[in-house]
């Protein structure tokens, strides 16, 4: 299937346009961070804990959704089992913190372990494409969740409780994981960092190969790149981002449970990305805030919240196919473009 957009000339044009869109994403992240800071200031002034901790959870889930968007939006890989890595990070972090409550040690171990785990499972998942990829990732998550669910040493279906409060040393200051404002700010910084690293990586030549993979996989080898390696690399990277986000979860809530790995969690992350806007990165963060607020409000208002969530979810796919950021971002980009000239 040849289409004009695959010719070299228009490819460079497309890159200009995607560069512009990426800048629009950055602007929207700045807006997000500023809003979050205002929120934190107000929360601190009012002595709130509940909303701050809820918002922290939304940020953590936003980091997780970011990893799903890296796969879905940049490589066209729809994973229905990505919660496997989020849960993996949460469990490894919980196990480490129960041994020694050292933040950096736990994060280091999660980073290394998740890379290894993502590599091994990625070898399996990346043998297949399209709907089969969705099924294999789903199956992998299912199998591992079942193992965790049945393993006494990991708390089985009860999960693990009693994860201690963790001091996070940041050179000048130390953030305690149970301090609502400080931990919110820390999580905000952490997730923003994940965003920045992802955005940087996807803007390198490696990221362009991925974009090409999504557009037309069969042509990429002719450009001298290994599709398999590129896809595996991005899979490992997405696993690590999910696991690092998951690692913060037990610090916030003090426990982990097998539900973190279940299909519901994976599905939620995909919905978050679709609501926020596939392939925008920043959409994951906005989507997560929207979904968390929506669920919290609907969950306390009606018993039939799942039906409401299901309906919203179908409505978004049908009426807002590019998500919130798919709608907002081009407008911001147009403003940037106009300003640049």
């Amino acid at each position: 299937m040849l289409s004009p957009s695959h010719l070299p000339l228009s490819a460079t044009l497309r890159h200009d346009r995607s560069g512009l869109l990426m800048r629009a994403s950055h602007v929207l992240v700045v807006v997000f961070v500023v809003a979050a800071l205002v929120f934190a200031a107000l929360g601190a002034a009012l002595g709130d804990t509940f909303f701050l901790r809820l918002a922290t959870e939304a940020l953590i889930l936003g980091g997780f959704a970011l990893s799903v968007d890296i796969l879905l939006g940049y490589t066209g890989l729809l994973s229905l089992g990505h919660a496997l890595y989020f849960g993996f990070g949460a469990y490894v972090s919980a196990l480490m913190l129960k041994q020694t409550p050292s933040f950096w040690l736990a994060m280091g171990v999660v980073l290394v372990a998740a890379a290894a785990f993502g590599f091994l499972t990625g070898l399996i998942a990346n043998r297949v494409r399209g709907v089969y990829f969705a099924l294999v990732t789903f199956g992998l998550a299912q199998v591992f969740a079942k193992v965790v669910y049945n393993t006494r040493a990991l708390g089985a279906s009860d999960g693990m409780i009693g994860i201690p409060i963790v001091p996070i040393e940041l050179g000048v200051v130390t953030v305690m994981s149970n301090a609502p404002v400080a931990f919110f700010l820390f999580t905000l910084g952490f997730v923003t960092m994940l965003y920045a690293v992802s955005a940087y990586l996807l803007d390198t030549s490696f990221g362009r190969v991925l974009g090409a993979l999504r557009a037309n996989e069969n042509r990429v080898p002719f450009l001298g790149y290994s599709t398999h390696r590129a896809r595996l690399a991005i899979y490992v990277f997405a696993s690590v981002v999910a696991a690092l986000s998951g690692a913060l979860y037990p610090m916030l809530r003090g426990f982990v449970s097998p539900e973190l790995m279940f299909f519901a969690a994976s599905g939620n992350a995909v919905i978050t990305v679709v609501i926020g806007g596939v392939g925008t990165l920043v959409g994951a963060l906005y989507g997560s805030v929207i979904l968390t607020v929506l669920k919290s409000v609907i969950g306390t208002m009606t018993e039939h919240h799942l039906i409401v969530v299901g309906l919203i979810f179908m409505a978004v796919v049908i009426f807002l196919p590019k998500g919130l950021m798919g709608f907002v971002r081009p407008r911001v980009a147009r403003l940037l473009d106009g300003g640049g000239r």
């Binding site: 729809l78 969705a134 596939v278 179908m314 796919v317 196919p321």
Partner: peptide
């Protein structure tokens, strides 16, 4: 289309 049909 794939994403859409899966989600719907």
């Amino acid at each position: 289309a794939t994403i859409g049909t899966v989600l719907v």
